[in-house]
């Protein structure tokens, strides 16, 4: 039995047995791990609110060699992100961010960049400046970190032409007019949306917030990214994870 002590973000909680909880964390040093918190649903439990989704905490757990699930021993809150839970819209966006990390990352593979991205995105949601923009930027950066970075500048059909009017989920990028016929399922993309995606792809998550796209562009980009992620992770529910 080995000892695990790391910073973590709570991605999801599930009721287990009579009074326990099954928690999935995204940890700084071990990536995505799941563990059992014994008695976490009892009224007077030692974990308190530390195991609520979105909580940034310091996790102490024990690992068994035969079991993938760790035994959660102690959890101390570093930042609760409590303000996120006071509003339905932020709960929904925060849940989608956590679910994306849950679905797009493999188990036990450390990825500090994704940890910091999720932490920063939850902080931006909490301040509530432009939440829909924060969510779009989170999707753009998470796709990049997970290795599914689409080609936004030149045709992904292999011609090397710049610009494009359609986006192909299969080819993973924009297609020029000549290549657009190669994928019947490719979808149209406006020049404004493409310009926005090119700009934010080159910027980091924080500086991406200096952009102020129109509502129409945000809607178009969000739908496009949701569909692309749905395609990449093989989800049956369009735009839901």
């Amino acid at each position: 039995m080995s000892h695990l002590s790391t910073e973590a973000l709570v991605l999801s909680t599930l009721r287990l047995g009579e009074a326990d909880k099954l928690i999935t964390f995204f940890t700084l040093t071990r990536g995505k791990i799941a563990g059992v918190a014994k008695g976490a649903r009892r009224f007077k439990n030692r974990f308190g609110a530390a195991l609520e989704p979105f909580t940034q905490c310091h996790l102490v757990a024990f690992e068994k060699t035969q079991n993938k699930l760790v035994r959660i021993n102690q959890v101390d809150i570093l930042h609760s992100f409590q303000k996120l839970r006071d509003d339905w819209d932020t709960i929904e966006l925060g849940t989608q961010m956590a679910r994306l990390v849950l679905r797009m990352t493999p188990e036990e593979q450390p990825h500090p960049a994704i940890y910091h991205l999720l932490q920063e995105a939850l902080a931006f949601l909490e301040t509530g400046l432009d939440r829909s923009l924060s969510f779009i930027l989170f999707m753009v950066k998470l796709i990049e970190e997970c290795g599914f970075q689409p080609q936004w500048t030149i045709c992904s059909g292999g011609t090397g032409h710049g610009g494009g009017t359609t986006f192909s989920h299969r080819e993973g990028g924009i297609l020029c007019d000549r290549c657009a016929t190669r994928d019947a399922a490719s979808v149209g993309i406006s020049a404004d949306a493409l310009q926005f995606l090119q700009t934010v792809s080159a910027a980091d998550f924080r500086s991406g917030h200096s952009q102020s796209p129109s509502i129409l562009v945000k809607r178009e980009v969000e739908t496009l990214l949701r569909d692309y992620i749905t395609y990449m992770i093989g989800s049956k529910k369009r735009g839901r994870w």
Partner: peptide, 11 residues
Amino acid sequence: PNIDGEATALY
């Protein structure tokens, strides 16, 4: 008083 309960109350 957990996230599911709070979300339900808000809804």
